[in-house]
């Protein structure tokens, strides 16, 4: 494992010369270190590059880290990871990714993650993306996340990209079963010429299912972001999607939320707000002694916290 990988691992996960629980580290398209535990088994996927991760029913309080790093140009890494979460398990999954370039060649990581949550299981899924290095090459991270939630299960997904990634297309789809809940919190900061596309499709198929999509984004420089979400209510369910975006400089944001209710007891709400930082917020912080630039930085940092 090279030094750049170690730096990336520290910034996207809680790497500290290793991980306490189960893990698998991917570097430039290859698995370089792995550990399974009694309750969390990580194996190679047979038909494609990637892993099959199985969490035993009833496993509580454990975590599994599956970071992926790309540390030089001309790599187009695709990986397929499947997670099977046993009934009643409650675990944390950390899937950080970093692309580092010191040259002009592009590099990309494309992680396709499928989650199958068993009955009454609970998963917190953290996904942090960074781009680093001085090279002008284009750093792309294109995650695909497919989620299947069985009865009574809950997935909380925290997705964070606070800089350095030039292009990202993030596709997340979910099928939510009876009394299951999906919560997705996404925070994205783009700057310069960066582009970010977010695409959520959530099908609410189970009675009393719920989804809450919360997206906060800041588009600075000449960057561009697009937010698309579609919540389809096929059963009595509650769905809420909220897209809040701050524009700075010449940043651009498109938001296209869509709600489809196919059941009379589907209650779906969407909120979207795009605009520059409210002038009164800057004014207020300036009355506390901050300069305009300090005030703006605080507001953005708080917004993306």
């Amino acid at each position: 494992m090279n030094e750049i990988t170690k730096e990336i691992l520290k910034s996207v996960s809680d790497y500290n010369d290793g991980y306490k629980d189960a893990y698998s580290i991917r570097e430039n398209g290859c698995g370089v270190a792995r550990k399974s535990t009694e309750n969390i088994k990580i194996e190679d996927k047979e038909d494609a590059p990637g892993l099959v991760i199985r969490v035993k029913p009833g496993t509580k309080g454990e975590r599994v880290s599956i970071p992926a790093c790309v540390t030089h140009g001309n790599i187009d890494d695709i990986v397929y990871n499947d997670f099977y979460i046993g009934e009643g398990a409650d675990v944390l999954i950390v899937a950080g990714c970093g692309v580092h370039l010191d040259t002009g060649e592009p590099a990309r990581h494309n992680g396709i993650h499928r989650f199958f949550l068993g009955k009454n299981s609970h998963v917190v899924y953290q996904e942090k993306h960074v781009g680093t290095g001085r090279g002008p090459g284009i750093r792309s991270i294109d995650p695909v996340t497919e989620i299947t939630l069985d009865e009574g299960s809950e997935l909380e997904m925290d997705s964070l990209q606070l800089g350095g990634v030039d292009k990202t297309i993030r596709k997340t789809s979910a099928v939510v079963g009876k009394e299951a809940h999906l919560i997705i919190r996404e925070r994205i900061l783009t700057d310069g010429e960066q582009e970010a596309v977010t695409d959520f499709v959530v099908e609410m198929n189970g009675e009393n299912s719920g989804v809450n999509l919360i997206s906060r984004s800041v588009a600075k420089g000449s960057s561009h972001q697009a937010y698309r979400s579609k919540i389809i209510g096929n059963a009595p369910c509650t769905g809420h999607s909220e897209c809040d975006a701050i524009l700075a400089d010449n940043g651009k944001v498109d938001a296209a939320p869509e709600l489809s209710a196919n059941h009379e007891d589907a209650a779906l709400i969407h909120e979207a707000a795009i605009g520059k930082i409210a002038g009164e917020q800057i004014t207020k912080l300036r009355t506390l002694g901050l300069t305009e630039a300090e005030a703006e930085a605080k507001i953005v940092a708080g917004f993306l916290k």
């Binding site: 906060r216 809040d244 409210a278 009164e280 917020q281 004014t283 207020k284 912080l285 300036r286 009355t287 506390l288 002694g289 901050l290 300069t291 305009e292 605080k298 507001i299 940092a301 708080g302 917004f303 993306l304 916290k305």
Partner: peptide, 30 residues
């Protein structure tokens, strides 16, 4: 505004401003 704040002028607004993501303790510390 900033220069006056630094001289020790403080103003509690008639209509206070709301912030997403900034907590009460953040604001008190600022």
């Amino acid at each position: 505004i900033t220069e006056r704040a630094k001289l020790g002028i403080s103003y509690a607004f008639q209509q206070p401003v709301r912030f997403k993501g900034i907590t009460v303790s953040d604001l008190l510390e600022l």
